[in-house]
């Protein structure tokens, strides 16, 4: 495998493609920025897919982000073995949670005829990419621990070298195949991101987190109408 191509060229190609197509798609087809929810079609299995997946993936991506931005803090936290073990177990738990959610999402789309009908080839493509990503991530956690420490020590400097436009792939020279696959697949996902349903990440209603609370007044008896409180 040519390390320079995969870890010094592909990242830039992916990010440029991501930026250009994301902007272009928003300019030309802004109402397509959606994941086209199928919750109305089926909502029982949906819960056990989308909730674990989203809580898992957001936490795991957040952990990657912290390790990239504050590697020294992660290494400081891991300085006590018990804290290192706690972080690793939590990380593995969240990774398995993500995997459980993603498998449920895929099974539901396969098993439920209505959900299957509204699933495009693009959706299957990105589900496949995400499955590879999460499975390799869980594999790395199990077979190449303790990733929280060696990521902060070895991967963060490589990512920063990319950010500084002077890529140093020596950090990755002898990384295990599973780690390389995880990284390459991540950049392939970034490259195809703007062509897929993943664009919904960019239009998540984040202002809900900080907007003023809204008072909702019901002008009928909810108990009588809905039979619930």
């Amino acid at each position: 495998m040519n390390d320079f191509f995969w870890f010094a060229v592909l990242p830039y190609v992916s990010v440029v493609l991501f930026l250009l197509v994301t902007i272009r798609r928003y300019q030309t087809s802004k109402f397509s920025y959606s994941s086209l929810s199928s919750q109305f079609l089926e909502n029982q299995q949906h819960f056990w897919g989308t909730v674990p997946f989203h809580y898992g993936i957001i936490s795991v991506l957040g952990a990657h982000f912290v390790a990239i931005v504050m590697p020294r803090s992660v290494l400081w936290w891991n300085a006590a073995p018990l804290r290192l073990f706690m972080l690793e177990v939590t990380g593995l738990g969240l990774a398995i949670l993500t995997l459980v959610g993603l498998i449920n999402i895929c099974l539901r789309r396969l098993a439920n005829s209505k959900a299957r009908r509204v699933t495009s080839w693009g959706d299957w493509f990105i589900y496949g990419g995400l499955l590879v990503q999460v499975v390799t991530g869980v594999g790395i956690a199990v077979f190449h621990g303790w990733g929280s420490s060696w990521f902060a020590a070895s991967m963060s400097p490589w990512i920063w070298s990319l950010a500084k436009l002077s890529p140093d792939v020596s950090y990755l020279a002898t990384m295990p195949l599973l780690v390389k696959l995880h990284i390459i697949n991540a950049f392939l996902i970034i490259a195809v991101f703007p062509f897929t349903r993943l664009v919904h990440i960019l239009v998540a209603p984040n202002p809900y987190f900080w907007r003023k609370t809204q008072v909702v007044l019901w002008n009928w008896d909810r108990t009588r109408i809905r039979g619930t409180d």
Partner: peptide
């Protein structure tokens, strides 16, 4: 032990959800 603890964390979170 590590794998079982990870599965335990996942199961606990599913119960919480």
């Amino acid at each position: 032990t590590f794998i079982l603890l990870g599965i335990g964390v996942c199961a606990a979170l599913l119960v919480v959800f």
